[in-house]
Amino acid sequence: MSLQSKLESGKFAVSCEFGPLKGTDTHEIQENIEVLKGKVDAANVTDQQSSVMRLCSLVTSALCVQGGLEPIFQMTCRDRNRIALQSDLLGAWVMGIKNVLALTGDLPDLGDHPQAKGVFDLDSVTLLQAITRLNEGFDMAGNELTGKPTFFAGAVVKVDSDTEASAELQIAKMQKKIAAGAKFIQTQAVYDPKTFEKFMERVEKFKVKVPVMAGIIPLKSAGSARFMNANVAGIRVPDALIEKMDAVAKEDRAKTGIQIAAELIKKMKPMCQGVHIMAIGWEKRVPEIMAEAGL
């Protein structure tokens, strides 16, 4: 069953994500495909995450299609103007890619080619509008397409905000993304089910509702949790979880991290329509996390 049919029929879906490596060696990709296919409903393929140059998400997504793993093609607006974005979208459809996740993207400054020109001709919202337009059979300029796609487009949102303005801006932008054509939402990692519950109460009041998949990043150590708290906007690992990670012996950390992730999934499952597991290096352990969470 495809991600789209699953979410549209109200079933609970699981996605994960992995990033292509720098270079032409695709062994890692093939291994991930083998481990994940038949387990998750779909896998996000990141688009030069953190502005670090890597093998492209379009081709890697096509490899997933060939290997039997349904991809969610991540597309940022950092490296392509509207001509290239639309052209790559048409190419993606031809290669059998059905899901697209529209993102604005980080600035090049963050990555390994900080001198690069950031394009940002479009942003997440206007990219979603472009995808919607392509689905209708037209390009952004209003020209008719010969053969049209029917993409299932998604977007992301940050759940945990530290100011009223930030929280309201996230809600407003999420509604804009839905109005522009997002049919599903994946969230930034959540570690506090109560925060997620409050967020979902807001989302339940939207006039147009779309399925929300809660973001999960399994903790690897207390140190990595503290690092995320200090450096990643919108991620807040509660002290209790950090202490829990601190208390276990080094060899048991992975097990505890996976248990915590599974517990979070169990608690948030009744509030949403899926989880998005960002394992960051632990892609092959996603089935283990799912089993632990009873998925």
Binding site: T104, D123, V125, T163, S166, K176, G234
Partner: peptide, 10 residues
């Protein structure tokens, strides 16, 4: 189109 998700404490 609105804020990114990157702001911290404003």
């Amino acid at each position: 189109s609105g804020a990114c998700g990157g702001a911290s404490n404003g």
